[in-house]
């Protein structure tokens, strides 16, 4: 009757604290490195200057079709140039929405 209770066991809560603490530290570290290290303002200013100089109007993100390269400036019907019911066939076109500005034209019915 002299056996001793085992003592070297790590409690679950301790393990939890270590794991979560470690991950939070890692997250904070990553966040700090990317937030502090980046010259975001300077970079954006230089890019904005280029936009102003060249009078650019859209993102060069999707270059596969002209209505995805400059969605705001595309002809409204370009996605449907093969027919009003034709299916969209450029993959990235499904990532953007059609511009909302309707053409400044109107239909008028006149009585003769």
């Amino acid at each position: 009757m002299t056996a001793r209770a085992p003592s070297g066991r790590l409690r679950g809560s301790t393990v939890t604290a270590i794991v979560f603490g470690g991950l939070l530290l890692l997250a904070a570290g990553l966040g700090a490195v990317s937030l502090i290290g980046a010259d975001t303002a300077g970079r954006r200013d230089r890019a904005a200057a280029l936009v102003a100089e060249l009078a650019l109007s859209d993102l060069a993100l999707f270059t596969e079709a002209r209505y995805t390269r400059n969605p705001a400036l595309a002809d409204l019907h370009t996605p449907f140039q093969d027919g009003p019911a034709s299916l969209e066939h450029f993959p990235t076109a499904s990532l953007i929405v059609a511009p909302r500005g309707l053409p400044a034209g109107r239909l008028e019915a006149r009585e003769e």
Binding site: S57, D58, L59, L61, P71, A72, L73, P91, S94, L95, I96, V97, P99, R100, G101, P103, A104
Partner: peptide, 29 residues
């Protein structure tokens, strides 16, 4: 528009709106 009736005028709001809509949660693929 009065001076150039044959033109359409796209405002920057239209352009940034289409940029805004990029990956906005409701959209697309």
């Amino acid at each position: 528009g009065l001076k150039l009736p044959g033109h359409r005028f796209v405002s920057r709001a239209d352009m940034s709106r289409s940029a805004e809509a990029l990956f906005s949660w409701r959209e697309g693929l």
